[in-house]
Amino acid sequence: MAGFNFKLIKNPLSKENPITVQVLGICSALAVTAKLQPAVVMAISVTVVVAFSNLIISYLRNTIPPRIRIIVQLVIVSLLVILVDQVLKAFVYDVSKQLSVFVGLIITNCIVMGRLEAFAMSNKPFDSFLDGIGNGLGYAVILITLGVVRELFGSGSLWGYQIIPDSFYEMGYQNNSLMIMPPMALILVGIIIWVHRARNKDLCEK
């Protein structure tokens, strides 16, 4: 084992964040974050799939013929996703119902394919595994931020527990129901990207 390369985990958290910088895996990030709980479950599932598919592909990287590599990658990823889906259905059935098609869509999640192509095809298994975990965590950071903001302001609760006290509602406080609608997810991601780039000037375009 050639040492523990800590950068592989740290970089994707901010400087090479899969969502805000590499622009991968947007679809699921937006759709599952109306509540915190599905967002966390989704983040864990994606991390598991990315890490293990990176590991497997990296072991096989010298035996896969380049012409059919996409099909091989898709088959391995879909096997892992089927496993994750069955586990979710068995242990957290309610969340699995809420996530509906988005568990299946991990197969075509650009994070998985993107990291396989960009990293696992040309690096050692253990490094690829770390890269998978790092990118999964980078994805998780954005998902959890979105989940917290949207659930707190959209439903006044976190993880299903009420956070904003009843006395606020009696004083005329209202939940912002636009927060749990799709458009607000897009605008929030836009704002996150804005803040992130304002603090890291070298990421700005042009």
Binding site: T20, L186, G190, I193, A198, K201, C204, K206
Partner: peptide, 11 residues
């Protein structure tokens, strides 16, 4: 500048 490209497209 920080909003250029990706950010404004999202909004």
């Amino acid at each position: 500048t920080p909003l250029k490209g990706l950010g404004i497209t999202f909004i």
